[in-house]
Design a protein around this nucleic acid. Structure first.
Lengths: 143, 143
DNA sequence: TTGGCTGCAAAGATTTTGCAAATGG
DNA sequence: CCATTTGCAAAATCTTTGCAGCCAA
């Protein structure tokens, strides 16, 4: 139950927080990466009366609590994703915006090596590949 | 001469463009990664009368021409860097903002492999490590 | 000369904050 | 109850755009 997650974060269990956390947990693999605006629009569509400012505040609090991860893909704005614990990186289609996840042990260990060599104690990293997905390549060839 | 770079980009050779390109080329290894605001403030300090809007326009044009690279490190705003051609990634100190560059063949080839497996044709990537640099760790221990 | 370029101010986009009313524990 | 939380509107950031005058070619 997401109720417990919210409580564990030291936050009161309120309707906006439950709805937002539910939404982030339930998104299918194909669009689990939402901007604050995305979350807000979906809440409105669901008939919830939750303000955009609240969405920003809640997402920021969830981020601080480690419940969600914030990404800065190309485009300036923040993209949020429920934190399922298992680390992964992203590949984004620059045509359609499709996001896929991957994780690679070789890359992970090289990163640690590099940080050690440069004498940094690594706290985090972000790796994002950009490309054109198979579907968009096909669409381009046969319009 | 940066004059030729500007001409090759199909742009007129103007004072703002020359000054901005000079600045980006001359920054030492230690702070070669500047926001539009950084560039603007330094121009003012140098006594140049160049508007912030022009800085944004010129940087965007330079980016389109491949003369500079735009990064989205943590913090929302864009960071610009002169494009010396040789690809590299970054490691940023989360305490002092120090930026260092590195490049790693193992990571590069793994990325290509991953994109191939997911059936994306890779166009770009961004990898940024975050950590605490040796200097900041020392400073924290002995305040 | 003339089309591109610039500075300024104003508009946009995204995110944060102040505040009174609502609400969870 | 009462500290937190919320919604709204206003402010703060960062970036882009419209326009009249300026300038490189």
């Amino acid at each position: 139950m997401e109720t417990q997650d919210i409580r564990n974060a030291g936050l009161k269990v309120t309707l906006p927080r439950i709805k937002i956390l539910e939404m982030l947990e339930e998104q299918s693999d194909q669009d689990r990466h939402l901007s604050a605006e995305d979350v807000y629009k979906r809440l409105i569509q669901q008939g919830e009366e939750i303000g955009l400012a609240t969405v920003y505040r809640v997402l920021t609090q969830f981020e601080a609590a480690g419940l969600v991860k914030r990404h800065h893909f190309e485009g300036g704005n923040s993209i949020f994703e429920f934190n399922r614990g298992e680390h992964h990186d992203h590949i984004v289609c620059v045509k359609c915006g499709r996001v896929e996840e991957f994780s690679d042990e070789v890359i992970e260990s090289r990163q640690k090596e590099i940080a050690k060599n440069l004498d940094f104690s690594l706290t985090d990293h972000s790796l994002c590949l950009y490309g054109i997905c198979a579907h968009c390549r096909t669409a381009a060839t046969q319009p």
